[in-house]
Simulated assay, not measured.
Amino acid sequence: MPDWIKSYVRWVEAINYRVGRFTMYLLFVIMGVMLWSMASKVTHLPANWTLETAQFLFVAYYLLGAPYSMQLDTNVRMDLLYGRLNQRTQVMWDILTIFFLIFYIGVMLYGAIDSTVYSFSIGERNPTAWRPPLWPVKLVTCIAFSLLLLQAVAHFFRDVATLRKVSI
């Protein structure tokens, strides 16, 4: 494999590893927000921001964790036949299907960018009592889809290297 492909795969996987490890700790932040929500209800101090904050953090947790999950190959597969195939056939199947994934992520990223630009340009806010701006969570969505797209391409290069019996 060319050196630029090796560098690309290492670079993308290093970024997604760090982002994924950071993202794991968002679960504790979500738990803290929910504990604050519970405490505010017990003490009759309204905190109308807690539910939406927890939802926004969970979006970040879920979406930013996806590239890391793909990197570690811990994503869920619904396979009836895949698990019975030999490794070489599995890799060839992965190489074929990764193009569908890349197309899908590309469409999602296009929509996310369009939605984020629109949200930012009009100052879109959530129609609730707290009324937080929506562009930050939409920006996180764009970043997550970008990282997932980069990871899918890196996964493709790893599969090609495996098929050629070359290490990256």
Rank of each mutant, 00 (worst) to 15 (best):
M38I: 14
A161L: 07
S37I: 03
I113G: 04
F58N: 06
S7A: 13
Y62P: 00
K6D: 07
G20I: 00
V117G: 02
R158I: 01
N126L: 10
F120V: 03
N75E: 14
D114T: 12
R125H: 00
Y68Q: 02
M108Y: 06
I122D: 02
D94A: 02
G83T: 02
Q90T: 08
Q55A: 13
I95K: 07
L148E: 05
R164E: 10
F56P: 08
L109E: 10
R158D: 04
R131T: 11
I98E: 04
S69N: 08
Q151K: 06
V166S: 14
T74E: 13
R77C: 08
K165E: 14
S40C: 13
V59P: 02
D79W: 08
G106P: 04
L149S: 08
Y110K: 12
V91T: 12
D114K: 15
W11A: 02
P46Q: 11
F157Y: 09
V107P: 12
R125L: 02
G32D: 04
L26Q: 01
I5E: 05
F99M: 15
T89K: 15
D94T: 03
A152G: 05
I122G: 06
S40W: 10
Y17S: 04
V107G: 11
M108C: 11
Y104F: 13
L134S: 03
A144Y: 01
Y118D: 13
M24V: 15
L85K: 11
A144P: 01
A14F: 02
K41W: 07
G83D: 09
L64P: 03
A60M: 08
Q71E: 10
M1E: 05
